[in-house]
Design a protein around this nucleic acid. Structure first.
Lengths: 127, 127
DNA sequence: CTTGACCTTCCCGTAACTGGAACCCCTATC
DNA sequence: GATAGGGGTTCCAGTTACGGGAAGGTCAAG
């Protein structure tokens, strides 16, 4: 199967798939004409990657998760640790954004937003 | 004033300040020896930038906000529009992260995290 | 006179791709 | 047989907002 069809099936742009091959996350074979040939296992991996990336895991996390996925002797604790760490990072990010949002919303609501130059937002930024 | 002292006063790394000069957000003068010479207005701009960046505004937003800050004829509506747009982006980001967080937390709690290979997280990723 | 702490410029690397150029392959049609 | 199109291929540059580090100039102190 060519890259275009594979891309449609797994929901990733061809460019992204080529990139994943470049960094050795997938290693599709090649046809005689040089075109990449995706097998079912390749597609499965790509779907795994698409899902993991959609959950916000970094490429390097994905690499490790994929390795664990293919390792029958893995311990679920390893997987859970990665996911929990990621969850903690997400919580941090949410907390940071909420704090931002609070300040920003306050400033926006204090600003008249009309044709006059007076602006509490700029006042805040300017100190 | 040299860059090191300026950096301490405004709370930005020297590298960042040099970068801001490179992209023309600030234009400090130069001493005879080639060292950057920061004036009070320069410091004020840098503090403005530091604060705006801390609120998550992009560099390009900062550029516009700074211009508005220095424009007596501005209309606060222009500033408010930028801030409100930024606020909307932040809300989107928070919503996205919360959705992620929900799925992820669910998976993590479903995973035993012991020495056995069975793992709902990988099961989910693998489809 | 040297040491150490500054400063300067310049270039590379980051994350995870995206866009584009230049070129090859395959099929269909005129 | 030439051509047009819609694939595919590689490689290079750009994105965001800096950070690291090299090579070298400057300055005050001991």
């Amino acid at each position: 199967m060519n890259i275009g069809e594979a891309a449609k099936l797994v929901g990733l742009p061809p460019k992204t798939i080529r990139y994943y091959e470049e960094i050795a996350l997938v290693t599709p074979g090649r046809d005689a004409n040089g075109y990449r040939a995706f097998s079912e296992p390749d597609l499965h991996k790509l779907r795994f990657l698409a899902r993991a990336r959609a959950l916000g895991f970094s490429i390097e996390d994905c690499r490790v998760l994929l390795a664990l996925y293919e390792d029958d002797t893995r311990e679920s604790a390893q997987v859970r640790a990665i996911a929990q760490e990621h969850l903690a990072r997400i919580d941090e990010k949410i907390a940071g954004l909420k704090a931002l949002r609070g300040t920003l919303a306050h400033l926006v609501s204090a600003c008249a937003g009309d044709d006059r130059p007076d602006c509490p937002i700029l006042d805040d930024l300017g100190g």
